[in-house]
């Protein structure tokens, strides 16, 4: 069985220590901010700006983990490591794959919000 796109337990814990409305607000913020971070992965890749690439991947990793998108977060972490190492060659396919993952995460988070 493949890993679920989002770990509901993470979101439930977050909701129990805050409230559902706040979790909804966090999800919206993430969904608003992530596309520009994903774009920034592409532009920094094109510019061979490893530091900027690393930071964008770092934010996606961190936000993904906060909202239970563990697999997405792990993929972003791989990109962060590539950025940290400084050699961005061959990262393009991974960025595309992260984009595809983000589509799934978006759907899963929207579903979670509607259920709540």
């Amino acid at each position: 069985m493949p890993d679920p796109v989002i770990d509901r337990a993470t979101l439930d814990t977050l909701a129990s220590t805050t409230d559902k409305e706040f979790v909804g607000e966090l999800i919206d913020t993430f969904l608003e901010d992530a596309p520009s971070l994903l774009d920034s992965l592409m532009t920094t890749l094109a510019a061979q700006d490893a530091e900027g690439f690393r930071r964008a991947a770092h934010s996606l990793k961190s936000n993904g983990a906060s909202l239970g998108a563990m697999s997405f977060s792990a993929s972003a972490k791989e990109l962060e490591m590539i950025g940290k190492a400084g050699d961005l060659s061959g990262a393009e396919a991974m960025v595309e794959s992260l984009r595809a993952e983000f589509e799934q995460v978006t759907q899963a988070l929207k579903d979670y919000k509607h259920e709540a």
Partner: peptide
Amino acid sequence: DDNKVNRLLLARG
């Protein structure tokens, strides 16, 4: 923090 999700999380608590 440059990350808005993190700022929200911190501010909330």
